[in-house]
Simulated scan of single mutants.
Amino acid sequence: MVNPSIRAVLSRIRKIVFGVGENDGLVFKAVVYLLLIGIGFIYLYPLLYMFVNSFMSLDDLVNSMVKWIPTELYTENYTKALQVLDFNKTLLQTILVASVPAVAQTVMSAVIGYGFARFDFPLKRLWFVLMIATFVIPPQVTMIPTYLMFKDYHLLGTLQTFIYPALLGQGLKGALFIMIFYQFFKKLPAVLEEAAQIDGAGYFKMFYRIAVPTAGPAFIIVFLFSFVWYWNESYLAALYFGNSLTILPLELQRFSDSYSKMFPPGTPGSQLNEAIKMAGTMLTIAPLLVVYFLLQRWFVEGVDRTGITGE
């Protein structure tokens, strides 16, 4: 027979290793952490690769012995990338292009979502279906008619091509953001608005005094997603802005041509290499990374409460 003390020790070891009840064992935790580390590495590997290579000199790039640790911290790549991107000017324009329409779209999506959630009006379901259809229809279908309309109204080359659709609830992914606010406001207890009406509050006051404070996570997530999508929208920016405005992703697409004009072939140190391109890419995504790290807590909370799992 097994000694009772030994049996107790084995039972305790089994509980620690495999867990019992609601307590997870070491094996389960190890498997979960290994999966998380593996998935995290898949997403972080391109970013780490770009960051390391952006600090490599040309000698390190052609040296097969140098993989992850450069022989020296070579910052000339960033100096050239800053010049090619005209970083300070382009960054300010990118922030303007991304933030103004994002703010307009966030506000108008909240108003439209509140209207669909709290009011009944003629043909409400039809309007709701049409609103969803704007999200389902590919943007390539409406791109040319929209371009011609902006041309007729002499709006091409201005930020109004992004602002006006946002003010009308038709900005980038506008239907998705309206649905997010609709989901929040639909859950708002009607007794709160009834009590406010008894106190003499009108619809506008009920909106900004009762509805808006409860939808804080929705405002955060809608603004952040809208900001990121406008930041990365290089195709429509090139189509509507022409040479009047530019953004960092658009300048990154033109990086090779701009570099050739600024550093003509044949001049010393003018050869464009992978490290310089990586430096330009890091400069393009760095502001978004800063925004994410500053607003990470609210970002995760907003994603969790709105149900957005990936876009």
Rank of each mutant, 00 (worst) to 15 (best):
M1W: 05
N3P: 01
S5G: 01
R14A: 07
V17P: 02
V17G: 03
G19K: 03
V20S: 14
E22T: 11
N23P: 00
G25D: 06
F28E: 09
K29D: 07
V31C: 09
I37E: 07
G38E: 04
G38D: 04
F41M: 15
I42K: 02
Y49M: 14
Y49Q: 11
F51T: 07
S57P: 03
D60G: 00
L61P: 00
L61T: 00
K67F: 06
E76C: 00
Y78L: 01
L85G: 01
A98W: 03
A102S: 15
Q105F: 05
V111G: 09
D120F: 04
F121P: 11
L126S: 10
L130T: 06
L130N: 11
F135Q: 10
T142Q: 13
T142S: 15
M143R: 14
P145T: 12
K151S: 15
K151Q: 14
L155G: 12
L159K: 06
F162I: 05
F162K: 14
P165T: 07
F177C: 09
Q183H: 08
F185I: 05
K187R: 12
V191C: 09
Y208Q: 09
P213S: 08
F223A: 14
F225M: 06
N232F: 04
Y235K: 04
A237F: 07
L239Y: 04
S244A: 15
P249T: 07
E251D: 09
E251P: 03
Q253N: 13
Q253S: 12
F255M: 01
Y259H: 13
S260P: 02
M262S: 12
M262W: 03
P264Q: 08
P268C: 13
G269C: 11
S270W: 02
L272C: 00
N273I: 00
K277T: 02
G280Q: 00
T281S: 13
L283W: 05
Y292T: 07
Y292S: 10
L295M: 14
V303D: 05
R305S: 15
R305G: 06
T306W: 02
